[in-house]
């Protein structure tokens, strides 16, 4: 297979790596969630590409259809997409609640709040003794 024949898989790898990079590199929680989505989308593409048979058509039970694509990975990834949507929904709901609780969705600011909280707790502990 020529390198152009693997075009889909090159896209998969690029999307996968950029998605993972966004998750790691960005401090904004919404951006992290988007990165996660890009990462998952790459997997959807991988599954869809692997089911494709060259020259094949849709898998319909008919005499005239001889070559057809493998429908199983496509069906699997429908489940995968549903899982992805559910994950995004839960993540987005969490971000809304984080925004309400901390007033920010930037990771470093949240960390600052948490450290302050810990320090005030520790100070209270000292005055106790």
């Amino acid at each position: 297979m020529s390198s152009l024949g693997l075009y889909n898989y090159w896209v998969v790898v690029v999307l996968m790596m950029s998605g993972l990079y966004i998750v790691v590199a960005h401090g904004n929680l919404v951006k992290k969630l988007i990165g996660l989505n890009v990462f998952q989308a790459s997997v959807f593409m991988m599954y869809i590409s692997m089911g494709k048979v060259a020259g094949g058509t849709a898998p319909i039970l008919d005499e005239s259809i001889k070559v057809y694509s493998n429908p199983l990975p496509h069906v699997l990834i429908l489940t995968g997409i549903v899982v992805g949507v559910a994950t995004t929904a839960v993540g987005a709901a969490l971000i809304v609640r984080i925004k309400r609780a901390y007033g920010t969705i930037e990771e470093y600011e949240i960390e600052k709040h948490e450290i302050e909280e810990e320090e005030t707790n520790a100070a209270e502990g000292l005055t106790c003794f």
């Binding site: 996968m16 993972l20 998750v23 929680l29 992290k32 969630l33 996660l36 990462f39 998952q40 997997v43 991988m46 599954y47 692997m50 990975p73 995968g80 994950t87 839960v90 993540g91 969490l94 971000i95 609640r97 984080i98 609780a101 901390y102 949240i110 948490e114 909280e117």
Partner: peptide, 27 residues
Amino acid sequence: DRRALTASFRYLVMGTVGATFYIIGVG
């Protein structure tokens, strides 16, 4: 505790990356 929210979000990100790695392997 509001720290549970950030803990849960972090778990969600790491957990989803883990599960997605798993389906890449399965694929």
